[in-house]
Amino acid sequence: MTKAEFIESLIGSLNGLSEDDIKKSKDYYEEMIDDRMEDGIPEEEAVSGLGTVDEIKDQILEEVPITKIVKERMKPKRALRAWEIVLLIIGAPLWIPITAALIVVALVLYLCFWIIILALYLCDFAVFIWGFGVIIGAFVQQYGFNAGLFMAGCGVASIGIAILLFFGFTKVAQGMIFLSKKMGLGIKRMFVGGKKE
Protein backbone atom coordinates (compact mmCIF):
# COMPACT_ATOMS: atom_id res chain seq x y z
CA MET A 1 0.00 0.00 0.00
CA THR A 2 1.30 3.43 -0.95
CA LYS A 3 1.35 6.42 1.35
CA ALA A 4 -1.53 8.10 -0.52
CA GLU A 5 -3.67 4.94 -0.38
CA PHE A 6 -2.96 4.50 3.31
CA ILE A 7 -3.82 8.10 4.19
CA GLU A 8 -7.02 7.93 2.11
CA SER A 9 -8.04 4.71 3.85
CA LEU A 10 -7.26 6.17 7.29
CA ILE A 11 -9.28 9.32 6.64
CA GLY A 12 -12.20 7.18 5.48
CA SER A 13 -12.04 5.02 8.59
CA LEU A 14 -12.12 8.09 10.85
CA ASN A 15 -15.30 9.38 9.29
CA GLY A 16 -17.37 10.64 12.21
CA LEU A 17 -14.57 12.40 14.07
CA SER A 18 -14.24 16.16 13.87
CA GLU A 19 -12.34 17.60 10.92
CA ASP A 20 -9.68 18.87 13.31
CA ASP A 21 -9.08 15.40 14.77
CA ILE A 22 -8.96 13.80 11.32
CA LYS A 23 -6.49 16.43 10.10
CA LYS A 24 -4.28 16.00 13.16
CA SER A 25 -4.16 12.23 12.65
CA LYS A 26 -3.56 12.60 8.91
CA ASP A 27 -0.67 15.05 9.48
CA TYR A 28 0.85 12.89 12.19
CA TYR A 29 0.90 9.68 10.15
CA GLU A 30 2.00 11.47 6.96
CA GLU A 31 4.94 12.89 8.86
CA MET A 32 5.73 9.50 10.38
CA ILE A 33 5.79 7.81 6.95
CA ASP A 34 7.90 10.65 5.54
CA ASP A 35 10.42 10.28 8.38
CA ARG A 36 10.70 6.53 7.76
CA MET A 37 11.12 7.09 4.03
CA GLU A 38 13.83 9.69 4.71
CA ASP A 39 15.65 7.02 6.70
CA GLY A 40 15.80 4.94 3.52
CA ILE A 41 12.86 2.60 4.12
CA PRO A 42 10.86 1.89 0.93
CA GLU A 43 7.38 3.52 0.81
CA GLU A 44 5.31 0.32 1.10
CA GLU A 45 7.49 -0.98 3.94
CA ALA A 46 7.29 2.39 5.74
CA VAL A 47 3.47 2.19 5.51
CA SER A 48 3.12 -1.45 6.51
CA GLY A 49 5.46 -0.88 9.47
CA LEU A 50 2.85 1.38 11.09
CA GLY A 51 0.30 -1.41 11.38
CA THR A 52 -3.11 -1.84 9.80
CA VAL A 53 -5.57 0.99 9.37
CA ASP A 54 -7.92 -0.69 11.88
CA GLU A 55 -5.18 -0.88 14.50
CA ILE A 56 -4.30 2.79 13.99
CA LYS A 57 -7.98 3.72 14.06
CA ASP A 58 -8.33 1.97 17.46
CA GLN A 59 -5.29 3.82 18.78
CA ILE A 60 -6.75 7.15 17.67
CA LEU A 61 -10.21 6.34 19.08
CA GLU A 62 -8.71 5.44 22.47
CA GLU A 63 -7.41 9.01 22.70
CA VAL A 64 -10.67 10.75 21.74
CA PRO A 65 -13.35 11.07 24.46
CA ILE A 66 -16.64 9.35 23.64
CA THR A 67 -18.60 12.54 24.39
CA LYS A 68 -16.68 14.39 21.69
CA ILE A 69 -17.41 11.63 19.18
CA VAL A 70 -21.12 11.54 20.01
CA LYS A 71 -21.35 15.33 19.91
CA GLU A 72 -19.69 15.42 16.50
CA ARG A 73 -21.95 12.64 15.23
CA MET A 74 -25.11 14.33 16.46
CA LYS A 75 -24.18 17.75 15.08
CA PRO A 76 -26.35 18.44 12.00
CA LYS A 77 -24.25 18.64 8.88
CA ARG A 78 -26.82 20.90 7.26
CA ALA A 79 -29.78 23.04 8.30
CA LEU A 80 -32.79 20.94 9.23
CA ARG A 81 -35.74 21.08 6.86
CA ALA A 82 -39.15 22.16 8.14
CA TRP A 83 -40.65 18.65 7.99
CA GLU A 84 -37.65 17.25 9.88
CA ILE A 85 -38.14 19.78 12.68
CA VAL A 86 -41.87 18.97 12.81
CA LEU A 87 -41.06 15.23 12.95
CA LEU A 88 -38.56 15.82 15.73
CA ILE A 89 -41.11 17.77 17.75
CA ILE A 90 -43.87 15.23 17.18
CA GLY A 91 -41.55 12.35 18.05
CA ALA A 92 -40.13 14.13 21.11
CA PRO A 93 -42.34 12.26 23.61
CA LEU A 94 -40.81 9.05 22.29
CA TRP A 95 -37.17 9.81 21.53
CA ILE A 96 -36.45 12.08 24.50
CA PRO A 97 -37.41 9.46 27.16
CA ILE A 98 -35.67 6.69 25.23
CA THR A 99 -32.49 8.75 24.92
CA ALA A 100 -32.68 9.76 28.58
CA ALA A 101 -33.20 6.12 29.59
CA LEU A 102 -30.23 4.98 27.52
CA ILE A 103 -28.04 7.66 29.07
CA VAL A 104 -29.15 6.69 32.58
CA VAL A 105 -28.55 2.98 31.88
CA ALA A 106 -25.07 3.77 30.56
CA LEU A 107 -24.31 5.89 33.64
CA VAL A 108 -25.59 3.22 36.01
CA LEU A 109 -23.50 0.53 34.29
CA TYR A 110 -20.46 2.77 34.51
CA LEU A 111 -21.12 3.41 38.21
CA CYS A 112 -21.68 -0.31 38.87
CA PHE A 113 -18.36 -1.05 37.29
CA TRP A 114 -16.47 1.24 39.67
CA ILE A 115 -18.59 0.23 42.66
CA ILE A 116 -17.65 -3.43 42.09
CA ILE A 117 -13.97 -2.50 42.08
CA LEU A 118 -14.42 -0.33 45.17
CA ALA A 119 -16.34 -3.13 46.93
CA LEU A 120 -13.55 -5.61 46.25
CA TYR A 121 -10.95 -3.34 47.83
CA LEU A 122 -13.24 -2.51 50.76
CA CYS A 123 -13.72 -6.24 51.44
CA ASP A 124 -10.00 -6.71 51.35
CA PHE A 125 -9.48 -3.77 53.70
CA ALA A 126 -12.09 -5.17 56.07
CA VAL A 127 -10.30 -8.54 56.23
CA PHE A 128 -7.03 -6.71 56.88
CA ILE A 129 -8.46 -4.56 59.68
CA TRP A 130 -10.31 -7.54 61.15
CA GLY A 131 -7.00 -9.38 61.32
CA PHE A 132 -5.44 -6.61 63.38
CA GLY A 133 -8.54 -6.36 65.55
CA VAL A 134 -8.48 -10.04 66.37
CA ILE A 135 -4.76 -9.89 67.22
CA ILE A 136 -5.46 -7.04 69.64
CA GLY A 137 -8.37 -9.06 70.98
CA ALA A 138 -6.06 -12.00 71.58
CA PHE A 139 -4.18 -9.94 74.15
CA VAL A 140 -7.19 -8.55 75.99
CA GLN A 141 -9.53 -11.54 75.88
CA GLN A 142 -10.32 -13.45 79.06
CA TYR A 143 -10.54 -17.06 77.97
CA GLY A 144 -6.94 -18.06 78.52
CA PHE A 145 -3.81 -18.77 76.51
CA ASN A 146 -5.31 -21.24 74.03
CA ALA A 147 -8.11 -18.89 73.07
CA GLY A 148 -5.59 -16.07 72.70
CA LEU A 149 -3.39 -18.23 70.50
CA PHE A 150 -6.38 -19.21 68.37
CA MET A 151 -7.43 -15.60 67.94
CA ALA A 152 -3.91 -14.43 67.18
CA GLY A 153 -3.57 -17.23 64.62
CA CYS A 154 -6.82 -16.22 62.95
CA GLY A 155 -5.69 -12.60 62.91
CA VAL A 156 -2.27 -13.36 61.44
CA ALA A 157 -3.80 -15.61 58.78
CA SER A 158 -6.37 -12.92 57.97
CA ILE A 159 -3.67 -10.35 57.36
CA GLY A 160 -1.90 -12.82 55.05
CA ILE A 161 -5.15 -13.53 53.20
CA ALA A 162 -5.84 -9.78 52.89
CA ILE A 163 -2.40 -9.22 51.32
CA LEU A 164 -2.95 -12.03 48.81
CA LEU A 165 -6.46 -10.78 48.09
CA PHE A 166 -5.05 -7.32 47.35
CA PHE A 167 -2.95 -8.71 44.51
CA GLY A 168 -5.83 -10.87 43.30
CA PHE A 169 -8.30 -7.99 43.35
CA THR A 170 -5.78 -5.74 41.59
CA LYS A 171 -5.62 -8.27 38.76
CA VAL A 172 -9.43 -8.44 38.67
CA ALA A 173 -9.63 -4.62 38.60
CA GLN A 174 -7.05 -4.46 35.80
CA GLY A 175 -9.05 -7.03 33.85
CA MET A 176 -12.26 -5.07 34.35
CA ILE A 177 -10.61 -1.81 33.26
CA PHE A 178 -9.24 -3.57 30.15
CA LEU A 179 -12.71 -4.92 29.44
CA SER A 180 -14.29 -1.50 29.90
CA LYS A 181 -11.76 0.04 27.50
CA LYS A 182 -12.64 -2.58 24.92
CA MET A 183 -16.33 -1.91 25.45
CA GLY A 184 -15.75 1.84 25.16
CA LEU A 185 -13.81 1.28 21.97
CA GLY A 186 -16.64 -0.84 20.62
CA ILE A 187 -19.10 1.93 21.35
CA LYS A 188 -16.83 4.51 19.71
CA ARG A 189 -16.50 2.23 16.65
CA MET A 190 -20.30 2.36 16.31
CA PHE A 191 -20.09 6.11 15.78
CA VAL A 192 -16.89 6.27 13.76
CA GLY A 193 -16.31 4.35 10.58
CA GLY A 194 -16.34 4.42 6.85
CA LYS A 195 -13.95 3.06 4.37
CA LYS A 196 -11.74 0.27 5.55
CA GLU A 197 -8.38 -0.92 4.43
Binding site: L149, G153, V156, I163, L164, F167
Partner: peptide, 24 residues
Protein backbone atom coordinates in the same frame (compact mmCIF):
# COMPACT_ATOMS: atom_id res chain seq x y z
CA UNK B 1 8.55 -10.98 48.59
CA UNK B 2 5.20 -9.55 49.72
CA UNK B 3 3.34 -12.60 48.39
CA UNK B 4 5.79 -14.92 50.15
CA UNK B 5 5.31 -12.98 53.39
CA UNK B 6 1.53 -13.26 52.97
CA UNK B 7 1.75 -17.02 52.44
CA UNK B 8 4.02 -17.24 55.47
CA UNK B 9 1.47 -15.35 57.58
CA UNK B 10 -1.33 -17.66 56.44
CA UNK B 11 0.70 -20.77 57.25
CA UNK B 12 1.85 -19.39 60.61
CA UNK B 13 -1.64 -18.19 61.54
CA UNK B 14 -3.19 -21.48 60.45
CA UNK B 15 -0.65 -23.41 62.51
CA UNK B 16 -1.30 -21.27 65.62
CA UNK B 17 -5.04 -21.76 65.28
CA UNK B 18 -4.66 -25.48 64.62
CA UNK B 19 -2.47 -26.02 67.69
CA UNK B 20 -4.86 -24.12 69.95
CA UNK B 21 -7.87 -25.95 68.52
CA UNK B 22 -6.13 -29.30 68.96
CA UNK B 23 -5.46 -28.41 72.60
CA UNK B 24 -9.19 -27.77 72.99
Amino acid sequence: ITILIAIGLIVAGGAMSFVSLAAA
